[in-house]
């Protein structure tokens, strides 16, 4: 074997657990922030941007874009999933393409008859979600963990104009009157397939966008361009956290 192909890295690298693990959009955020942006550690040990600058709150009210890719999330699929999640006091949405919020702020997304994703809440920085099993040996028969933390990026639009921003990017009407709290749309935005969820977080109207992680670099530039019209821009995770 050529020297070129040899590596000293171990087969498994725990990138997500490494404290320097950051999203692909971190460098861009670092450029928009005045100086180095403030960071905060998630429950899994990786870093997300806490605050971009002093005007975060104002931008978040209009059209903010939050990079939450490093915040824990997970998924489960199979016949026994709903029962198992309900046993852990997670709310089960009544049909596919609906989402439900837990009392503590985690969200359960029902993406098909037997597939559920769980999104961390920004207040505990994903502690509850990161403690859920990731191995099939720890879940009951008929309930299989999914790795949407690795496969998907998580961007969030916030503020009063979220529906209008997405009108520019998608054929599905995601304004509030047609896409109320808890609705899910699995469709393409700006030609990238994504799962969109209408939420309310820390009093802010928000739409989470879960797209293929390899497209998040492109989608970030698209979203930043789309929010210009509404005086929006990148914001840190602090706008989603209550006090």
């Amino acid at each position: 074997m050529s020297e070129l192909y040899k590596t000293e890295q171990p087969a498994h690298v725990g990138w997500a657990e490494d404290e320097i693990a950051r999203s692909v959009n971190y460098r861009r955020l670092a450029k928009t922030a005045a100086g180095e942006p403030e960071m905060i550690k998630t429950a899994s040990g990786s870093s997300v941007v806490k605050r971009v600058d002093a005007n975060d709150a104002a931008r978040a009210q209009k059209a903010g874009v939050v990079e939450l890719t490093m915040l824990p999330r997970t998924g489960f699929r199979g016949n026994a999933t709903a029962e198992w999640l309900a046993g852990q006091e997670y709310p089960i949405p009544v049909r596919p393409n609906l989402a439900a919020a837990c009392a503590e702020g985690n969200w359960v997304l029902r993406l098909s008859q037997r597939e559920y994703w769980l999104l961390a809440n920004p207040n505990d920085l994903g502690k509850a979600i990161s403690e859920l099993p990731t191995s099939m040996t720890e879940t009951p028969a008929g309930c299989y963990p999914l790795f949407c933390m690795d496969s998907h990026a998580w961007l969030m639009l916030t503020g009063e104009h979220v529906g209008e921003v997405l009108s520019k990017l998608s054929a599905v009407d995601m304004r509030e009157q047609h896409f109320p709290l808890g609705s899910i749309a699995q469709t393409s935005i700006a030609r990238v397939n994504a799962v969109m969820v209408r939420q309310q977080i820390n009093g802010l109207p928000a739409i989470s966008i879960l797209c293929d992680v390899a497209s998040s670099d492109y989608l970030w530039t698209v979203l930043m361009d789309a929010v210009q019209e509404f005086d929006g821009g990148a914001v840190g995770i602090d706008v989603l956290r209550s006090a």
Binding site: N97, L98, S112, Q113, P180, G182, S183
Partner: peptide
């Protein structure tokens, strides 16, 4: 029964369910 429940309802129906 499963598949019959999988059709997309109207926005009003979603609001009611929520």
């Amino acid at each position: 029964t499963d598949a019959a429940a999988a059709t997309q309802p109207s926005a009003e129906a979603v609001k009611e369910e929520i």
